[in-house]
Simulated assay, not measured.
Amino acid sequence: MWDSRTPGIPDELFERTEEVPITKEDVRALVISKLRLREGQSAIDVGCGSGSITVELCLQTRGEVHAIDFDQNAIELTKKNLKKFGVSAHVVQGKAQDVLPELPQVDAVVVGGTWGDAGKVIELAVGRLKKGGRIVIDTILIETMYHALAKVSELQLADIDVTQVTIAKARKVTTGTMMLARNPVLLISATKP
């Protein structure tokens, strides 16, 4: 389905619904890049939504990948997208706070959903990281960024990087092409020392 070794699968290739969010292709490419993945590594996708990041993790690592979401619609959509792209992951419905402690140590974690409890979810996610493992937190909420920055600092993570991404995509209109802005996204990445 996706033969390229680069991340950023076009959004239109994924199964989608109005009820379940998708991390857009440009943001996914940055998230995957900041994880600094290698083949054979393992990963967790917290708040998997449509499964777009889960699919990208599977394709990039070809290792063990776990996906978590509390929403049954998201779980079903993630499973459809995994099947569509011919990859597999361990998909679990539940709150991250309940599921993370049961998962194995991994090389990378993406936190895309914290359900209002960013500090606790990030602490549990870092607890699942192996030494030298990478975490990326992506959010559109300033409050989540605030709590995430406080937690990664408290946990004394290394190589902390904060990036705000503002993307606009072209759309044809009668008189030419206009750029339509998407929500700015905040990315926090760090390494477990």
Rank of each mutant, 00 (worst) to 15 (best):
D159F: 01
E12M: 08
G49I: 04
R62G: 14
T139G: 10
A67N: 09
I135Q: 02
N81M: 07
L180G: 02
A168I: 00
V121A: 01
R134Y: 08
D117V: 07
L82Y: 09
Q41G: 03
L149K: 02
I135G: 05
A190T: 04
Q60Y: 01
I140A: 14
G94F: 09
G176C: 07
H66T: 06
S52L: 00
A29T: 05
L82Q: 04
Y146N: 11
L180T: 12
T6E: 15
R5H: 14
F70G: 00
E123I: 00
D117Y: 13
D117Q: 15
M179V: 09
N183M: 04
K192S: 09
A148F: 08
V99C: 10
T144P: 05
G40T: 09
L35F: 08
D26S: 09
G132E: 00
E19V: 10
A89Q: 08
I167P: 00
R171V: 15
R36I: 03
Q156L: 03
G113I: 08
V165T: 13
T114Y: 00
T114F: 04
H147F: 14
C58A: 13
D107A: 06
L157M: 14
N183K: 12
T6M: 14
V165L: 15
S42R: 03
V99A: 11
V20Q: 12
D11K: 07
D69Y: 11
A190Y: 02
R5Y: 12
I32P: 01
L13W: 14
T61D: 06
H90T: 13
P104T: 11
Q164R: 12
G63Y: 08
Q105E: 14
G51E: 06
I160W: 10
R128E: 06
I137D: 02
C48V: 01
V65S: 03
E143T: 13
V65D: 03
V99Q: 11
T174Y: 12
L155R: 07
L187T: 07
T23Q: 11
L103W: 06
A125D: 04
A181H: 10
G47T: 04
R134D: 00
G8I: 08
G133P: 02
I137W: 02
G113R: 10
V126S: 06
K84R: 15
A168Q: 15
V121G: 00
